[in-house]
Design a protein around this nucleic acid. Structure first.
Lengths: 189, 189
DNA sequence: GCTTTCCGTTAAATATATTTGACAGACTTG
DNA sequence: CAAGTCTGTCAAATATATTTAACGGAAAGC
């Protein structure tokens, strides 16, 4: 994130000197100099003051910053983001469940997870529901899945597919870990 | 600009404690407490770290400041529908690729495939593109994936995620079969 | 009842952002 | 050329963000 370069670009695009902009924003030229060289990371309040003086909104500023760079298509297994069970609305019984998310779901309409359930793991009966659909394939181990009023034990190669608004629950009733690759749309915790 | 309130909202929406989020972002719970009370204005770099851990982009953050019987949820591995390669728009090189679809995609907004590529399999360079996004996780073997102008070899545990309108190609360059679980949205074949 | 653990908050210590004040280079004006 | 006035940068002083270490309250287990 080249905040400094971006600030310099928008300032120069308006033919303002560092001291000009500083005066309008209630800061000093030196501060802007350091920020533009990325020698200091401005506080949000300082950046807001600078953008108000331009004027430009924060989201405009960052949407241009964040659009820069190559799009990312590939993810090494070490780049998957580990989600905490609480984040997905799971209870304490799910404490040891590993949910590893492929990519940055907030930017996409598709969320894929690589999940691992240790023996005995249970997402609990009160799994929060949300819009969209979710589906998955069991890769390893066995798992008991409950959706609405239906229960079934899935083996490797089996899968599930349902509307996320239905209450659902996952329990590893086997003696070894259960690995699942799942997908949700739209991404919604 | 109620940065604190907004941060608290997105944090609580994910059921993360201040310390949880702090740990992932490399900060401390106390800092988040002060920020959420608007008693301190985080530096841009700190806020970026917090949002990366959520995950959420800066512009997203600021833009918000600113019956046919019983429904079927479960599918045994023998119930997956084998799609013919032509059906997916693949050429002759893909003749031995196995694409097994979970459920009836036409009725859902999510399509999940259990795919198997024998050694040497190649979807060809002219893979048809369509709307939506697609993503997947490699379960077994290795595969070379090309998306637009990027190429990468993926190993078990690695994944991909891209806009389906981009031209893409899969080639098994290993010596054993490659198994992938993939997801597309919306289903479009 | 009693721990134990997790939550959020706070005070003082430390790290960092920002200001003050000064410097050198570029351009104008006399 | 010299005196003015811009520009951007830097060093030291100051203000603020962040950490460390502690506190009280709420919930769970004994």
């Amino acid at each position: 994130m080249d905040i400094g370069g971006r600030l310099r670009a928008v300032r120069e695009a308006r033919s303002l000197s560092q001291r000009d902009l500083a005066g309008r924003a209630g800061l000093t030229g030196a501060a802007i100099s350091l920020i533009e060289q990325n020698k200091s990371s401005p506080s949000v309040s300082s950046l807001k003051a600078l953008l108000d003086a331009i004027p430009m909104t924060m989201s405009e500023f960052f949407s241009e910053v964040e659009e820069a760079g190559e799009p990312k298509y590939f993810y090494g297994s070490d780049e998957f983001v580990e989600l905490s069970p609480q984040e997905v609305g799971l209870g304490v019984g799910a404490s040891r469940v590993s949910l590893r998310q492929l990519g940055d779901a907030a930017r996409h309409s598709l969320q894929v997870l690589h999940e691992s359930y240790p023996p005995g793991a249970d997402t609990g009966p009160d799994h929060l529901s949300h819009d969209g659909e979710e589906a998955g394939v069991v890769i390893e181990g066995i798992i008991e899945v409950t959706v609405a009023d239906q229960v079934r034990v899935l083996n490797p190669g089996d899968g599930y597919l349902f509307d996320s608004r239905l209450p659902h629950r996952f329990r590893n009733i086997g003696e070894s870990r259960c690995v699942i690759v799942s997908a949700c749309t739209p991404p919604s915790f």
